[in-house]
Structure formats: C-alpha cells, structure tokens
C-alpha cells in the first residue's frame, strides 16, 4: 500500500493513497449528484439557467425553483449528512462498538419525545425543531450524567444509553396512541426525518454550526485515533484519556443536535457511514473525512430518491436513508468477510 507524505512548514501528515483516492472519488460523486439533483426534476433546468439565476437574469419561476427551493434543500442534505457521518464515526470509534451510534447516546429518541411533546403541549407544529433539540440534549445529558463515574466509562455509557433510549422510545410510542390518526401521521413524518421545504435560514444555521464543530472534530481525530488503541496505551502515549473522551463525546452530541434539529433523526446515516468508510478505505478507524463524505452522499441520494417516486407519491427522506444505507453496509460486510476468509 503506497502512501503520500505532505509537509508544508509546520504542517505534516501521512496519507495512504487509497484513502486519498476514496475521498476524491466520494467528493466527485457528491458534486455530480448535487448537480444532477439541482438541475433535474419535474421542472428541468440547464446549466445556463443556473448561471442566469445566480446573476439575477433568469425568470422568476426558474430562479425560485433553483435558488429558493432546490439549492437550500441540497445544501441541507449535504450538511446534515456530513454532521451525522462525523458524529457516527466519532462515537463508534470512541466506544469501540459497531452497534454504537448517536441513537445510543439517546439523542434520536430524546429528540422524538421533545418533538411529540411540543405538539401535545403547544398544539402546533411550529416549534417542533426547538422541542427536538431540547429533548435530545436533555436525554443525552441524562445519560452522560448517569454513566459518569470518575470519568466516562464507555461500557457503562453504552448500556445506559441503550436502556434509556429504549424507555424513551416506548414513551414516544405511547404518546403516539394519544393523538387522532391524522396528527399521528404528521408526527410520524417528523419522527422519520425529512428534508422537505428547507429554507436558507436552515442552511445558514446548519453550515454555521458545521463551520464551528467540523474543524474541532478533525482536531480531535488525533486524540481519538490514540483512544482507539485502548485507555492504557493512550495514557502511555500522553493523551489525557478522560478529558479527550468527554470532549469528543460532547462534540459528537453537538453535531447530532445540529443535524437532528434541522432534518429530524434521519435513521441510519450516522450508524452506517463509519462502517462503509472503513470498508472502502481499509484504514484503521477513525477515518472522519471519509465517513462524513459517505454520510453526505447517502443523505443526498436519499433525498433525491424521496422526490423521484412514481405516481406523484412523496415519502420523507428518512425512509430512504435506511433503504440506501442498509444494502451498502451489507455489501461491505460480505466483501470484508470474503477477504478475511479467502
């Protein structure tokens, strides 16, 4: 396996060629699909239309569809995918368990309860996102506090998280039986996660958050990859284990909070990005950038698929994240086990 070495002034890094290639291909795919998703659709447009729209020379409808409808939606999809991918890879590496994902720190279930309760208490769906954010953060904080014992113990955190998430999701199920069926359908749509009707406001919140948290995540990748060697080895290598673990966890929670509050839970993106990235790059985890790109690609594809159903049917993107992610994960599993046994 060949590698590339990069040294510029005080900056130096070593990159396996395969990792660079995989990431490059993912970026190209992402741009291609984003472009396709921007221009194609029930109202087809051309590259020239886009140029005109950007410079303000296009007609009103074209400009509205491209700039106010499709572009924010695509940018939201990519941003949410990046955030989920980063968070998923971080948490799975940190807890050393492929079953761990942000669902495990209770965020998705908590966000669900928050959302449903907002609708119950306020009688309107306007503040669903706020409720989701609050619910998610509350449950995540509860799990962190309960599993705290002179530091974060990963095993305890995972068990605690699964337990509390299960309880909270049963509360969600119970609440669902309290509505009439029409309201229940509305809430269900949100619980699945959707990217419909996103505005520039959502885009700016999301990308502003990403601009703050993303670089921090990559900064902590250095410590995270040492934590993957085990607590003892990490300590020997001079990494303060407890603070590093706490910081990366909080970072992951922040990323998930950001993504969930903009798009709903979008099941499976965070869970699947890391294993797919690992399967593609064949690098020891964490491979944050690759996982983030995979997350973005899965979300974008899911959103495109959710809009191109036959017969004018629309389903939320959250349905398709799992429909796309699961087969890819299974394919990775099969390839990996062939390699290992062959």
């Amino acid at each position: 396996m060949t590698t590339m070495t990069l040294r510029i002034g005080g900056f130096s890094t070593r990159l396996p060629t395969r990792l660079v290639l995989v990431n490059a291909v993912l970026v190209i795919l992402l741009v291609a699909f984003a472009g396709q998703s921007l221009l194609a659709g029930t109202y087809p447009t051309s590259l020239a239309d886009l140029q005109n729209a950007l410079s303000g020379r296009a007609d009103k409808i074209t400009s509205m569809i491209l700039l106010d409808h499709r572009l924010p939606r695509i940018l939201t999809a990519i941003g949410v995918g990046l955030a989920f991918g980063l968070a998923g890879e971080t948490i799975q590496t940190l807890l050393k368990n492929p079953l761990a994902s942000p669902d495990i720190i209770g965020f998705s279930a908590g966000a669900g309860t928050g959302a449903v309760l907002t609708v119950v208490l306020l009688g309107t769906g306007t503040f669903v996102f706020l409720g989701a954010m609050l619910g998610g953060l509350t449950v995540a904080a509860l799990i962190l506090a309960l599993s705290w014992k002179r530091g974060i113990a990963p095993g305890q955190l995972v068990l605690m998280g699964i337990g509390i998430s299960l309880t909270v999701s049963v509360i969600n199920d119970l609440l669902m039986t309290r509505f009439d069926v029409t309201e229940a359908a509305q809430i269900a749509k949100w619980l699945v996660g959707s990217l419909e009707a996103r505005h520039w406001q959502d885009v700016s919140i999301l990308w502003l958050g990403l601009a703050c948290l993303g670089p921090l995540a990559f900064w902590f990748q250095f410590k995270l990859s040492r934590l993957a060697l085990g607590d003892e080895t990490a300590t020997v290598l001079g990494v303060a284990v407890d603070p590093a673990r706490m910081a990366t966890l909080l970072l992951a929670i922040g990323l998930v909070a950001l993504a969930v509050s903009v798009a709903g839970p979008l099941p499976f993106v965070a869970f699947v990005s890391g294993p797919i990235a690992h399967g593609l790059t064949r690098q020891p985890r964490p491979t944050l950038l690759c996982a983030a790109l995979v997350g973005a690609l899965v979300t974008l594809l899911a959103d495109t698929a959710s809009q191109s159903l036959p017969g004018g049917l629309t389903l939320p993107a959250g349905i398709f994240t799992a429909l796309i992610g699961a087969p890819v994960l299974l394919w990775c599993l099969i390839v990996e086990s062939r390699k290992r046994r062959g």
Binding site: V181, A184, A188, P267, F271, L315, I319, A326, P327, L330
Partner: peptide, 27 residues
C-alpha cells in the same frame, strides 16, 4: 449482529413507508 441491525433498519424504513401511506395501517 451488524446484518441484523442493517436489515432491521431496512424493515423499519419499509414499515414507516407503509404507515405514512396508509392511515389504517398507522392506526
């Protein structure tokens, strides 16, 4: 376990798809 998790998610997605299309099923 991973295959189970993946397939569970797949089924769950399909379940939700049906639920969002059919009120009777959701009820």
């Amino acid at each position: 376990v991973l295959a189970g998790a993946a397939l569970s998610a797949l089924f769950l997605a399909l379940t939700w798809a049906v639920l969002l299309m059919s009120r009777e099923a959701l009820d």
